[in-house]
Computed example of a mutant assay.
Amino acid sequence: MANRVEVVRDGAEALDYLFATGPYAHRAGKELPAVVLLDLMLPKLSGLEVLARIRGDSRTRRLPVVILTSSDDEKDLVRSYYLGSNSYVRKPIDPGEFTRAVAQVGLYWLALNQPPPPSQ
């Protein structure tokens, strides 16, 4: 993928980035990412908590969110979709397979998917 990838280290930082707060206050007024790749196993706030906050705010409600996790727990899968995840992808353990999986996810969401128009 040629698109820029921003990496945050925990759930609280993810929310700061998306909502332009804390150390990311300088992002106020800037575009949201085209897609969020969200791990469920995050420090501070879990991926499910982050997803709930994303879906609970009108600014990010329609932002595509792909759960990218190593969890094979069916409860995580069901809860992710219940909270509004657009997709659920299990991370391959092999680093090469992981890279290919992320590239395929990126290709779909950034090149093939037709997103809705921005919120009015």
Score class of each variant (00 low, 15 high):
L15F: 09
D39V: 01
V36E: 07
S70G: 08
R100D: 13
V66Q: 04
S85K: 01
G11L: 04
G11Q: 03
H26R: 09
N113P: 00
A25L: 04
Y81S: 08
T21C: 10
P23D: 14
T99F: 07
I54N: 02
Q120V: 13
V102N: 03
K75C: 00
T99K: 14
R9T: 02
W109F: 10
L77C: 04
I54A: 04
E97H: 11
L83T: 07
A25V: 07
K44R: 14
Y82C: 01
S80F: 02
A14D: 02
V65K: 09
F19S: 07
P43F: 07
P43A: 10
A28N: 01
L42Y: 08
S119T: 12
Y88L: 08
D39T: 02
L68G: 00
V5T: 13
Q114D: 14
A111K: 15
Y82R: 11
D16A: 09
E6T: 14
L45S: 01
D76I: 04
K75A: 12
N86H: 06
R55Y: 04
L107N: 11
K91Y: 03
A28M: 05
A25E: 12
F98N: 05
S58A: 09
G11I: 02
L42C: 03
D73L: 15
Y108I: 00
E97P: 01
A12F: 03
V102Y: 05
I67L: 12
R53E: 14
P116M: 02
N3T: 09
G29Y: 04
V36M: 11
S70P: 00
V35I: 12
D72M: 11
V5L: 14
D39W: 02
P64T: 09
I54P: 09
N113L: 08
F98W: 00
P117T: 13
L37K: 05
L48I: 07
G22N: 12
D10K: 05
A14S: 01
D72T: 12
R4C: 06
E6W: 11
Y108Q: 01
W109M: 07
T69V: 03
L15I: 11
V89L: 10
